[in-house]
């Protein structure tokens, strides 16, 4: 009987969504759309930090751009009363991530910090996660990428270069989180403090539209942002429970 009990216990454990009932940290990013200008500094910052490849004109024409951070543009109205709404779009690190359930080899999974992790060397390239992700933020390596020498010297040694056949996406700059955690540990402190870790996009955003931090810390900047009444999540109706929270753009002329 103990075998069955054991099995049931494991099964119960296994059935818990996201494996982790409680996260060590709950990394969260807020995007203030009222600040964001769509300047795309974050796009380049991410590309520089995460070794996302230069794919070339033909590849982009074939819909194979690889930037993990992209700015979506939506126009509203007609000339002259026309408005552009820009929104940074990248992995939302959903706590109920559809991409995670579908991966047959658990190459993408939820980690103990609430991140949607992507394990490149486990990925077999079924691309199902990209189908299941409603935010279209997963990018597949349709081929190996090449950096004309000596451009390869700029590659970030803390981030692997992905090979063909592998899926990739925004990691919340997990290498920076790791380093912050290591540093906190080395300092003999128990936790990473607010502001000690900033993903590349957050770091560079000229308008300070992006704020990153631990939601479990009620005093963190990001927790304060979450309390703002403009906070919402994109495609909320899908119940993906994203860790990226947007702050509504303000229309000064709305009633």
């Amino acid at each position: 009987m103990s075998l069955i009990d054991d099995f049931l216990a494991r099964w119960h454990e296994y059935r818990r969504p996201g494996y982790y009932e409680e996260f060590d940290y709950h990394w969260t990013m807020t995007v203030d759309l009222d600040r964001c200008t769509g300047c795309e500094a974050c796009v380049t910052a991410c590309q520089a930090e995460n070794n996302t490849p230069i794919v070339g004109e033909d590849a982009i024409a074939r819909g194979r751009h690889m930037q993990w951070m992209r700015i979506e543009r939506y126009w509203e109205g007609e000339y002259p009363d026309v408005k552009l709404r820009a929104i940074p779009m990248f992995c939302q690190h959903c706590d109920a991530a559809p991409c995670e359930t579908v991966c047959p080899v658990s190459a993408t999974y939820h980690n103990q910090d609430g991140l949607n992790a992507q394990i490149y060397n486990r990925c077999i390239g079924t691309r199902s996660c990209a189908v299941y992700c409603p935010y279209e933020v997963r990018y597949f390596n349709y081929n190996n990428h090449h950096w004309d020498e000596p451009l390869d010297q700029q590659l970030n040694p803390d981030v692997s270069v992905r090979e063909k056949g592998v899926m990739e996406k925004c990691t919340f700059c997990i290498q920076r989180i790791r380093q912050a955690k290591d540093a906190a540990k080395d300092d003999g402190r128990r936790r990473v403090q607010d502001g000690e870790v900033q993903p590349a996009c957050v770091q560079t955003c000229p308008t300070e539209a992006l704020v990153f931090g631990d939601r479990k810390d009620p005093d963190s900047a990001v927790s304060q942002m979450l309390g703002n009444e403009r906070a919402y999540t994109v495609l909320e109706e899908l119940n993906t429970d994203p860790s990226v929270v947007y702050l509504k753009k303000v229309d000064a002329d709305a009633a």
């Binding site: 502001g195 900033q198 704020v211 942002m225 009444e229 403009r230 994109v234 303000v250």
Partner: peptide, 27 residues
């Protein structure tokens, strides 16, 4: 957007999210 409410809009009166470069400041 086709009415999908991707970029949502708030009224002018909403309180500010007055967190300036919080991470750097705190760090």
């Amino acid at each position: 957007e086709l009415g999908r409410e991707i970029v949502q809009i708030a009224d002018a009166g909403t309180p500010a999210a007055a967190v300036n470069a919080p991470a750097v400041a705190a760090a």
